[in-house]
Amino acid sequence: MTSIELKNVSFGYTEDRIVLNDVSLVIDKPGFYCIIGPNGVGKSTIVKCLNKIIEPQKGTILVDGEDIKNLKYKDLAVKIGYVPVFSNDAFSMSVVDTILVGRFNHTKTCSRSENLRKVYETMRLLHIEGLAYKKFNAISAGQHQKVAIARGLVQETPVLILDEPTANLDVKYQVYVMEMLRAISEKKGMIVLTISHDLNITAKYAHQVIMLAKPGVVHAVGTPDEVLTQENITHVYGVNCRVINDDQCISNPKIDRSCNLSVPHIILGEALDIEEGE
């Protein structure tokens, strides 16, 4: 089982622009993890540190107990798959070839048709198999997002990190993708870590929520009903809200409604006064 551990990680783009402030975090069980928090609080920065895209000034990051400073990019890539918010603006390949890039680390061990099979299966999972030979630049932003998710999934890494996988998706696919990621984490025993802005969908599907707050600190970690409380949301986001426990959104007929299952539901109120600018 792959594990990720951040020990007292601090990162700043410049001396006076500190983004992460002594962040410590352990993720050592499979599941669907969501990082939430307001803008500029270091959500993407954590993810980039995990992939060695940037190097924290202080602290250590361990993957399977090994400091990633000592790992080569290619050794880390086999463990952690990452899908950045990507737009291919220069020259675009077909959707198939774009997703096939995600199989880069499997090109030596798998034949072309095996790789194409994996790509096709994943396109089918995201209902984009009809776009296979469309140019990446010729499809919509929501479709880009599905291609990006597919590219992450075909990497077949034990850890998959997605930066805002539901951005640009319509309501149905926001739900579908998050539900799917939860299902995949359970089915495959994977760690799926996403950055998310939608509190309600996060509340419904995340196993664990990691809530970051200014100035780049971990405010709370736990199950959605532990973390997504009215106090936490108001404190971290500066928005009034009500949290109700909703049992209407559970649709699985195998579950008896009377057993009092519910998920937290956040109803947002007005924004509070902004104390200081960024």
Binding site: K29, P30, G31, E121, T122, R124, L125, Y176, E179, M180, R182, A183, I184, S185, E186, K187, G189, K204, Y205, A206, H207, T223, P224, D225, N245, I250, S251, N252, K254, I255, C259, N260, L261, S262, V263
Partner: peptide, 29 residues
């Protein structure tokens, strides 16, 4: 009971939050 629903189901079929259409898609995948 609310704690239970957030837990990790090592058998995804038992997860009450997952609808049958998603489960089917993921199983097919």
């Amino acid at each position: 009971s609310r704690e239970r629903i957030m837990v990790f189901y090592s058998n995804s079929e038992e997860d009450p939050l997952l609808g049958s259409s998603v489960l089917e898609s993921v199983n097919n995948w």
